[in-house]
Design a protein around this nucleic acid. Structure first.
Length: 911
RNA sequence: GGACCCUUAGCUCAGUUGGUUAGAGCGUUUCCUUGACAUGGAAAAGGUCACUGGUUCGAGUCCAGUAGGGUCCACCA
């Protein structure tokens, strides 16, 4: 067995084990009749993306779940893959082309799509490689991509199916248009931002009352040429006589009517509203109600067109805005302007203001909305933290039809063909249902030459909403069988960010309910049973991490610096359930330090004695000798059992940072700081050595099992180095984590009955040791190890036993420790629960300093006693509090009073 | 406008059905390279739990309100 080196060097260890695991296909998830399934599908990252801290958190959590499930003996499967990310990817490739002064139109659709595929083949594997560095135990043989042929077939089959069911329709409506990407967007892809602009006041002259005007306020004067009316509130007395009259449109001068509509807010501005149906949602509705025409003055790229009139046509919308204001000023129509902040919708991807634009698009009326609500409301799908279910339900309550078509080239081209010669813009509802005019199918019409295909592609989310289905072979039955659909669906847990609860989570639920196992009960059709929402990682100032701010560290740099395990440990330790996380690198260093501590504790074990039979928990337990157990042995086994229980609870409740804290506290404080230290004495005696080594092995083995999901690399390495595995096996694949009851049973089988009295004694010994060190330090003798301590014990029972003394001496740093019945003279002292501890000092004691120290403690004690006395004196408390609490308070008071008496005695002795 | 979250030590954060004197890591001060680990050990300092009320024998924890910070939804031109 190789010797464990002095410090942990993650780089080679990580490389070695990841390669070994992969070569053995150890991550493969296969159905097994005698095992419970456990399945996670990865939230597919953008195919051209790179790893961010958000990915690190998200994927570490998934890996923790999947690795823990494996150790529990479940057939665990984690399906990886990537998303083609329509707009994002197309934009990236177009940006590259622009560097060569070209656009996608220079290549044409087919050539351009080829170029995107090239790009994908070149860059598409990066993020998955990076996930491997992190230790992600995905079943890589089952990697999927949303544009793979099989996946695409699923996407298009769903389109055809929903079209036939009447859920998908084509409609001309005002959509969110992104002038940069030149495509429609869904409502979810628009983010509102406050923008500082100008509110212009413009007057419209009344046609038959020259010299009289109606004024309106607008933030968008460039759309005035698109005005088709002014609207006022029907009950507004100011305009009562004007309804039905006409006014002069001040730009592209023409007569437009004044209409009455309740949509107008009388309080705002002058109470009159200009109606521009082509460029505003409310205006569009008003226009429809009053049968007004639509004048679209914008081109697809956001420039003004001929309808905007001379002076404006050809200008960009922002330049046009300025110009329009100037023109109005010249003509005297502009009567005021003020600084104004309003909310403007921005394209999430391109980060430019969107334009409401009237276009033909494909729409989806969501299926299974009511079932989707019920699935979460009735607990078939559980959200962690639970509060997100409210957000989810609220969205479903107000759900709007989904614009699923995109004017892009990169994506799933909509499987609709139109008969040649038809004008797409003039199709009626009846035409769309007439198979002689419109053909909808996966394969297309047999006589393709007589048809032309729809240009639009589908929204990326209209493919990723099928992720849990299509990654398991759906809808092809042979493929589903191969993928184990029957066994693994519904998946167990989805781990994702709350920012895509509408984009993805809700839609996957509806897709699952609609398409999985038709006719089966709801709980068989849902795509997952649990959804764990992570927090968002922010920088130390609380800002969202983003590329443009440059405030996101590169996770790969962090892995180089602290190791993947250190990064994982650190990030999970600061990620409580559902709270946002402020990233501080200190915590990652903390993770690295923990790994080094673990490493060295195992090194200590290795250096302490030869390995025994370590092949299983039973084998190690067989080496325990209950007759040789002392209090420390009892206490450490009690703690590892409790920690095992704690972790079980943490996994049940998705409390990972609590889990890691429990492991940290146990391992660092209980095992390293105490048990390893007391071991040093035990190991020197032939009498106790073997039993002590067996306990170390039992504890370390269990600790490695509990830690492995969090820090897989180092635990695998140590598992092997300490011989807990057998030849050709992995901790990650072949080991089984005994649960707390199995662990307790293994101990009992060896006659080990954990004794609470002994655990309690250890806490007394700890207090003694820490008091002894305190005495040394305050006497300025911290470095000395040749001191003598006396423990005054006048009680009938002796709390410190002979067998404890050797260990106490080592930990106190003392040469002698004596239990005495009479107080020694001239020694500084501390009152402990085990008796008063004295430090023998050569020379004179600084009585003043000693008095001060004791008096300070006395003051704190007095305060505490007073509070406890007051509590017990309160009749309401003694009447109403539970007996256990009252008993506890009484006992505590007695102890405090005894301590006070002893302190008073010590103070008196100093006088 | 509606909903939700946060405010605890200098910093980053825990605190699970209300119940001893509120914890951790980092940082700070002092001491220690003792044969697992200086990526370490020991000791110490540091908090009126944002504020104001309420419920309760008892509130960091439950309720209401206020202030500050954040997120989501809806948006009046």
């Amino acid at each position: 067995m190789a010797e464990i080196s002095k410090s942990y060097e993650p780089r080679d260890v990580e490389k070695k084990w990841y390669a070994a695991w992969q070569a053995a296909h150890a991550f493969a998830g296969r159905p097994a009749a005698d095992r419970q399934p456990y399945c996670i599908v990865i939230p597919p990252p953008n195919v051209t993306g790179v790893l961010t801290m958000g990915h690190v958190l998200n994927n570490t959590l998934q890996d923790i779940l999947v690795r823990r499930a494996r150790l529990e003996g479940r057939a665990a499967l984690w399906i990886p893959g990537t998303d083609h990310a329509g707009i994002a990817t197309q934009t990236v490739v177009e940006r590259e082309l622009r560097k060569q002064k070209k656009t996608r139109h220079d290549f044409g659709r087919e050539k351009f799509v080829e170029k995107v595929w090239d790009w994908r083949h070149e860059k598409g594997g990066i993020i998955l490689e990076q996930l491997r560095r992190l230790g992600a135990s995905c079943d890589w043989d089952r990697t999927h991509f949303t544009m793979d042929p099989a996946y695409s077939r699923a996407v298009l089959a769903v389109f055809v199916d929903l079209f036939r069911k009447g859920h998908i329709y084509r409609g001309k409506r005002l959509v969110n248009w992104c002038p940069a990407s030149q495509t429609a967007l869904s409502d979810e892809e628009v983010i509102m931002k406050p923008v500082n602009g100008t509110l212009w006041q413009v007057r419209y002259e009344i046609v038959d009352r020259p010299g009289e005007f109606i004024s309106v306020k607008t933030t968008r004067p460039e759309t005035i040429p698109g005005d088709v009316a002014l609207a006022v509130h029907p009950d507004d007395p100011r305009y009562a006589g004007l309804i039905g009259k006409s006014v002069w449109r001040p730009l592209n001068r023409a007569q437009i009517p004044v209409v009455a509509d309740t949509a107008v807010d009388r309080e705002f501005g002058s109470g009159a509203l200009k109606i521009t149906p082509a460029h505003d949602k409310v205006d569009f509705e008003v226009g429809a109600r009053h049968h007004l025409p639509v004048i679209d003055v914008l081109n697809a790229d956001g420039t003004l067109n001929e309808l905007a009139g001379p002076g404006l046509a050809g200008l960009d919308r922002f330049a046009g805005r300025k110009k329009a204001a100037e023109l109005l000023k010249e003509s005297g129509a502009l009567v005021g302007e003020e600084a104004y902040q309003n909310n403007v919708g921005y394209s999430e991807r391109a980060d430019v203001p969107i334009e409401p634009r009237l276009t033909w698009q494909w729409w989806l009326k969501y299926p299974r909305v009511e079932e989707a609500k019920a699935a979460v409301r009735d607990g078939h799908i559980k959200f962690f933290p639970e509060r997100w279910s409210k957000v989810y339900l609220h969205w479903l309550e107000n759900i709007q039809d989904w614009c699923i078509s995109r004017q892009l080239w990169w994506g799933h081209r909509i499987p609709v063909w139109y008969r040649k010669g038809l004008n797409k813009e003039k199709l009626t509802e009846a035409d769309l249902k007439d198979p002689a005019k419109v053909h909808v199918s996966f394969d297309g019409p047999a006589d393709k030459e007589n048809w032309f295909q729809e240009d639009d592609v589908l929204d990326t989310w209209a493919s990723s909403w099928l992720w849990p289905l299509a990654t398991m072979g759906w809808p092809d039955e042979t493929e589903m069988k191969k993928a184990g659909f029957d066994y693994f669906y519904p998946t167990t847990t989805l781990v994702t960010g709350p920012d895509i609860i509408f984009f993805w989570v809700a839609r996957m639920i509806m897709a699952g309910l609609e398409f999985a196992r038709p006719g089966a009960p709801l709980e068989k059709r849902i795509p997952f049973r649990n959804v764990y929402f992570t927090g968002i990682i922010r920088d130390h100032l609380g800002r969202k991490m983003s590329k443009s701010l440059g405030n996101s560290p590169d996770p790969l740099d962090l892995i180089d610096k602290y190791g993947a395990d250190g990064l994982r440990f650190g990030i999970i330790s600061i990620a409580p359930q559902g709270q946002d996380i402020r990233f501080v690198e200190d915590r990652i260093e903390f993770g690295k330090n923990f790994c080094n501590k673990l490493w060295n504790a195992c090194r200590f074990r290795q250096l302490s004695g030869p390995a025994g039979d370590n092949a299983s928990l039973a084998a190690i337990a067989a080496r325990l000798d209950a007759a040789k157990f002392d209090a420390d042995d009892h206490a450490i086994l009690d703690r590892i059992l409790a920690t095992t229980r704690d972790l079980e609870k943490c996994f049940r409740e998705f409390e990972f940072s609590a889990g890691i804290q429990a492991l940290y506290g146990f391992f660092w404080n209980d095992f390293c700081d105490w048990y390893v230290e007391v071991s040093k004495a035990k190991l020197q005696s032939d009498e106790t050595r073997a039993n002590c080594l067996a306990i170390q092995d039992l504890v370390l083995r269990q600790t490695l099992l509990l830690l492995h999901p969090f820090i897989p690399f180092i635990t695998e390495e140590l598992w092997q180095l300490l011989g807990y595995g057998t030849a050709d096996t992995f901790l990650m694949r072949d080991a089984r984590l005994e649960d707390s009851s199995q662990l307790a049973a293994a101990l009992e089988n060896r006659g080990v009955r954990l004794d609470p009295a002994k655990t309690l004694r250890v806490s007394l010994l700890k207090e003694l040791v820490s008091s002894a060190r305190q005495l040394k330090a305050s006497a300025g003798l911290a470095a000395r190890s040749d001191l003598t301590y006396y423990l005054l014990n006048t009680a009938a029972t002796n709390l410190v036993e002979v067998e404890d003394v050797a260990r106490l001496l080592r930990l106190m740093g003392a040469k002698a420790f004596r239990v005495v019945g009479q107080a020694p003279e001239n020694c500084p002292a501390i009152v402990t629960a085990a008796g008063t501890l004295y430090l023998e000092i050569k020379g004179t004691v600084d009585a003043a300093a000693e008095k001060q120290r004791l008096a300070k403690e006395q003051a704190a004690l007095e305060k505490h006693i007073a509070a406890t006395e007051a509590r017990l004196a309160n009749k309401a408390f003694t009447d109403k509090a539970p007996p256990a609490v009252i008993e506890g308070a009484k006992k505590q008071l007695a102890e405090l009073q005894a301590k006070r008496a002893e302190l008073e005695r010590l103070l008196k002795a100093l006088d």
